Computed example of a mutant assay.
Amino acid sequence: MTLLVLTVGVTNGAWGQSTPAPSDTALIALGQQLFQDPRLSADGTIRCASCHRPDKAYADGRRVAVGVYGRASTRNTPSLASIGRSGDTSFFWDGRRPTLEQAVLDPFINPVEMGLRDDRVLLSKLTADAAYFTAFAKRFPGTTTPITLIHVAAALSAYIRSLDQRTSAYDRYRSQHDLSTLSAQAQQGLIIFSGKGECAQCHQPNGSPVALTDHAYHRTGVGLGAVEQNLPALTQDVIERSLQGTDIGNRVATHADESQLGRFNVTRNPADIGMFRTPSLRGVALTAPYMHDGSVPTLDEAIDREVYYRSLQAGRPLNLTVREKQELRAFLEAL
């Protein structure tokens, strides 16, 4: 096999082709090859790029992820578009991994994602390929074993961090102080986002670059109702198993009821039941459906859902008019 040196990123305000910003282009190219290679899955059909498509801001447009042998997961595929800019301190909807380098390895051995038996199978596939062996040895010279999990994670992480080179309309509005980059409707939407709509409490529209997340965990009122009657037994089972890292991911991917427990699966703290990580809103108009279980099909419905649930949390109605919701959507489309 020939190791292709490709660069896929974002430029000119659209998700597509570009040269990656980080300087280590060899490592990024190696990471991209891993990201695009379906041979690294159990059935030879699934690659990282199957669930992370550039036209969907590196989500996949499905309600939940679909992996090897057509197996469906329990969680919506999170966008990768913001990782290089948002300064994330945890990964996956429940935050079970504190670093990207840990997170990128988990899908290979998740039974409903890429489905390999264990990490050794992944390494054996790579080591048996002459082109991969040469590329890893060139990038990591002086090592007796050039293909290791650490090196695989480094390459994939470098590539993923290179993905978002897009400058959005809101980025230009903030950095260039150019009012013309946002429509009048979107500018009104920003006012609502930061004020009456209370969106900025969790999706903070500041920083450089703009992260649009508070890196925290919140309840959205989605999904937990389906398991409330069985909550005592369900939570007790999670506590007794006390899984960690990869094992948590493998479990929630195959058990829809436990998936709804969110952050609790990681901390086993009752206060975290139904709590999920705040995603960045970069490219949010492209990442439907929404929420951790993909149960909200459109951006308009996501806005309605958030307004309703924030009203419940605040103990008072937010009362956004139809026009204000349209303005808010226009702002979200500029992110």
Results as ranks from 00 to 15, higher is better:
D304C: 02
A211N: 02
D257Q: 09
S208M: 12
T267D: 04
L231W: 06
A302F: 07
Y309L: 11
Q201G: 15
N230K: 14
E198Y: 13
L231D: 00
G294I: 00
P209Q: 11
I192N: 08
Q244W: 13
Y290P: 02
G221I: 05
R277W: 11
D272S: 09
P205S: 09
I248M: 08
R251E: 14
G274A: 09
L299Y: 04
L231V: 05
Y309A: 07
G294W: 09
N269Q: 04
P289I: 04
F193C: 02
L234R: 03
P205Q: 10
V307W: 04
V252A: 07
L212N: 07
Y309R: 11
V252T: 08
D304R: 09
S311G: 13
G294P: 03
N230R: 14
A226C: 00
P205D: 08
E198F: 14
E258K: 11
L261T: 08
L312T: 03
V266Q: 08
P297Y: 10
C202N: 12
T298S: 12
A216S: 15
L234F: 06
L281G: 01
I192K: 08
C199E: 05
G274F: 05
F276I: 02
S194I: 01
G195T: 06
A211I: 01
F193I: 06
N206F: 14
T287P: 08
R305W: 10
D300P: 02
S242H: 15
Y290V: 05
Q236G: 07
A226E: 10
P205C: 09
T298H: 01
T213Q: 09
R263F: 09
M291S: 14
A211E: 06
V296E: 04
I248W: 10
D272V: 05
Q313P: 00
L224K: 05
A253F: 08
A200Y: 05
R268E: 08
T220V: 00
H203P: 05
E301H: 08
F276M: 05
F264M: 09
T287S: 11
P232Q: 07
Q204M: 12
D300S: 15
D247Q: 14
A285N: 15
T213D: 01
A302P: 01
A200T: 01
C202T: 12
A253G: 14
G249H: 00
N206A: 14
K196G: 05
Y290Q: 02
V222G: 01
G197E: 06
D293F: 10
H203I: 03
R305N: 10
G195F: 04
D304H: 06
A253M: 13
L286V: 04
V296S: 01
P297N: 05
R305V: 00
E258P: 06
F193W: 03
L261Q: 04
C199V: 02
E306M: 15
A233F: 08
N269D: 15
D237V: 07
F193S: 05
P209I: 10
